[in-house]
Design a binder for these strands. Sequence first.
DNA 1: GCGAGATAAGTTATATTATAACATCAAATC
DNA 2: GATTTGATGTTATAATATAACTTATCTCGC
Lengths: 126, 126
Amino acid sequence: MQADVLAVLQRRGAPMSAYEVLDQLRDGNPRLAPPTIYRALAALIESGSVHRLESLKAFVACRGERHRHVPIFSICEECGTVEEAVSRRITNELSRIAGQSGFAPVRHVIEVHGQCARCESKEAPA
Amino acid sequence: MQADVLAVLQRRGAPMSAYEVLDQLRDGNPRLAPPTIYRALAALIESGSVHRLESLKAFVACRGERHRHVPIFSICEECGTVEEAVSRRITNELSRIAGQSGFAPVRHVIEVHGQCARCESKEAPA
DNA sequence: GCGAGATAAGTTATATTATAACATCAAATC
DNA sequence: GATTTGATGTTATAATATAACTTATCTCGC
């Protein structure tokens, strides 16, 4: 099931809601129910193969290295495209800030909303 | 209504779901319905007085400067405490990364989950 | 083989979060 | 006082997510 869910997300290459994934997989398995999908997603997230985009309530296949990185997502509000980046500097700086108050980070959520280059140039073509 | 909602969030000083806010305000106004709360929250977020913690699906009164800052939230998964911080370095670095791909940021979501100093020391007291 | 334990998936029901769509009301303006 | 405007009320429902229990499958030791 995890493989199926991951395959759907990878084929799409863009964020999908859990229910979109569900609908896809129901084509081949009409009795599929939400818990099955959510469990597969939880396992995939645990293993780092999938990320949840908190601010979109959506899921996307990981496109960076699969472990121990802090992904930074750029989310275009026009076309929905999502880019995944990594930055040691950001990671370090977040650790530093956390350290100041003795906070022990376990998980980072970094999501930047805006407009990608493509959509920007379309909108303000001057 | 915005004032009422903000007051509830400030009194609590911790994240609350929209429905928790709703329940509070229903004490004085039993017919209150979700859209009213969500509308007030939307306006407060727009004005910067309230933030939505995406990864908690919850809302919190702003405790930083009210405008034009990029808040960084530390969320303790033990006790639920949330700290709000600001870092020019992070903001700058995110701009730099965005700039590389021509992405124009509009809104940043930075949330760090982990354990606060207090809960950490309680848990591993050696 | 076969039973015990572990893991994943199925199933049913429901909880939680959020919004659409339309109605009402009150103040501001003319 | 009619009219527009903006906030709120009201009803209904959409979208997201999980609880709780059941069933199937696998594997390991015997």
